[in-house]
């Protein structure tokens, strides 16, 4: 399969990429890992005039951990997020979630920024980013802005990114001591995407839930936060009964997607089951 003809520029800086994007926002696409864009171009689902290759822009790279938080450049690949020892020591969920994405070759190219900006309803990082209460840093002609991940997604393949803006980095607050995260997914056997994916972070104090955060992907038009289930569990123990009730609440939070592979009822049930499993794992 051959894409329709386009022109190509390798941007050397963020400023250059923004200039190129501003010239023709609708006819221009950003290229990083290319593992969503190139298949779409091959199928001619998209026919941009110009691809701006941002994969070499230094300002979009790196994983940095400071006292205040963690910054992950948009170009960090799934393989880099898997391999980073400092990140693993801080948040092992990155390695765990990365290992569940696609396959080794795809992980060597695909990026976290691409995964978030593309907003595939079944992508894995959106759930993890929501649970981590990450903020997404966006750069555009008017400068920088930050958006909470839970407010970033609007609809299927749709985010708050304007056509002339670039997702630059992901910022995660340092987790408090005792906060543990887990990501679980039911993997589509062919595509590897999440039929349902649940990211949960819990901090227990004297047996009771002191802090909790839940992100869900695969189930609805876009990733979302499981706020009602979180609110329910605050101050409670992770007893079997409480876990069952929280999982049930979360499965009733949203109208689930329905497709040839999984009905809405089936997805709602998977939310319940995966939430149970995640919470039981975090309780022990």
């Amino acid at each position: 399969m051959i894409p329709a003809a386009f022109d190509y520029v390798r941007a050397s800086s963020l400023a250059q990429a923004i200039d190129l994007l501003r010239d023709d926002p609708d006819g221009t696409k950003l290229l990083a890992g290319g593992h969503t864009l190139l298949p779409a171009l091959k199928l001619r689902l998209a026919s941009p005039e110009l691809l701006v290759d941002i994969s070499g822009i230094a300002e979009l790279k790196g994983i940095e951990i400071s006292e205040t938080g963690i910054r992950i450049g948009a170009l960090a690949t799934h393989a880099e997020l898997f391999a980073s020892e400092p990140l693993y020591r801080e948040l092992p969920v990155f390695r765990q979630a990365a290992s569940l994405i696609a396959d080794p070759q795809v992980r060597n190219r695909g990026t976290i920024g691409g995964s978030l900006a593309n907003a595939d309803p079944a992508a894995d990082w959106p759930a993890v980013a929501v649970a981590l209460q990450a903020e997404i840093e966006i750069v555009g002609p008017n400068g920088l802005r930050r958006v909470a991940t839970r407010d970033f997604f609007i609809d299927i393949f749709s985010t708050v990114l304007e056509p002339d803006e670039i997702l630059a980095s992901v910022h995660i607050p340092r987790p408090r001591t005792g906060m543990h995260f887990i990501y679980r997914k039911i993997r589509h056997p062919a595509s590897g995407f999440a039929v349902v994916g649940i990211a949960v972070g819990v901090r227990l104090q004297e047996g009771a839930v002191d802090e909790i955060s839940i992100g869900v992907t695969g189930a609805a038009n876009h990733a979302f936060a499981g706020q009602r289930a979180s609110d329910f569990l605050i101050g409670k123990t992770l007893s079997q009964d409480n876990i069952e009730q929280a999982a049930q609440l979360l499965s009733e939070t949203t109208e689930c997607l329905s497709d040839r592979y999984a009905s809405a009822e089936y997805r709602a049930n998977l939310i319940r089951i995966e939430t149970r499993r995640a919470l039981f794992a975090l309780a022990s």
Partner: peptide
């Protein structure tokens, strides 16, 4: 040094 799928990389990106 990284294994990748060359059907999903543009030749120009390999410059």
């Amino acid at each position: 040094g990284l294994a990748i799928k060359s059907c999903t990389v543009l030749a120009v990106m390999a410059d």
